[in-house]
């Protein structure tokens, strides 16, 4: 009588341990493969279009010109820090930032991070028309 009772209890316990094994395996798999949500910013740029004649008509007479070199940044040909550029541009863009066009000439020797930094600061003061052209040097 005592033997029979013990057998029933054992049968009820058996599937649990293997199920826990599987469940833990799944849990560890999902924890390991779960990655941080990458928060990306997308900086829209305008590329030079092949039909130049049409483009020149659209552009306002004097675009803001920023030159990105490997080790420095220039505004209208004068070397200055990025903070200074923001100071210089802010009063100009205050009224209608959407209408102003920025020409960003980038040296082929510059790094992408240099360009992204300039694009980022242009966007921070509200400039959205960012034309990126390559500087032949």
């Amino acid at each position: 009588m005592a033997g029979k009772r013990k057998r029933v209890q054992e049968q009820a316990e058996v599937p649990m341990s293997s199920m826990i094994d599987v469940v833990f395996l799944l849990l560890i798999y999902f924890i390991v493969t779960q990655k941080d949500e990458v928060s990306e910013a997308h900086l829209a740029v305008n590329l030079p279009t092949p039909n130049v004649a049409q483009k020149q008509q659209e552009d306002p007479p004097r675009p803001i010109e920023i030159t990105v070199l490997a080790d420095k940044v220039q505004l209208q040909g004068r070397t200055m820090t990025t903070d200074r550029i923001v100071e210089m541009l802010e009063p100009r863009v205050k009224d209608s930032p959407e209408e102003l066009t920025v020409m960003i000439k980038t040296s082929t020797k510059a790094h992408t991070s240099n360009l992204v930094e300039v694009l980022d600061l242009c966007r921070s003061i509200g400039l959205t028309q960012l034309n990126v052209v390559t500087l032949d040097d």
């Binding site: 092949p50 510059a110 790094h111 992408t112």
Partner: peptide, 28 residues
């Protein structure tokens, strides 16, 4: 971020030639 712009501009040229105009650069 460390890629030399020359290589990026090559890709941009290809994109420009294809006629697609909505181009963005990703940043963190």
């Amino acid at each position: 971020g460390r890629t030399i712009y020359r290589d990026v501009s090559k890709v941009m040229d290809v994109v420009g030639k294809s006629g697609l105009y909505r181009v963005s650069l990703a940043a963190e």
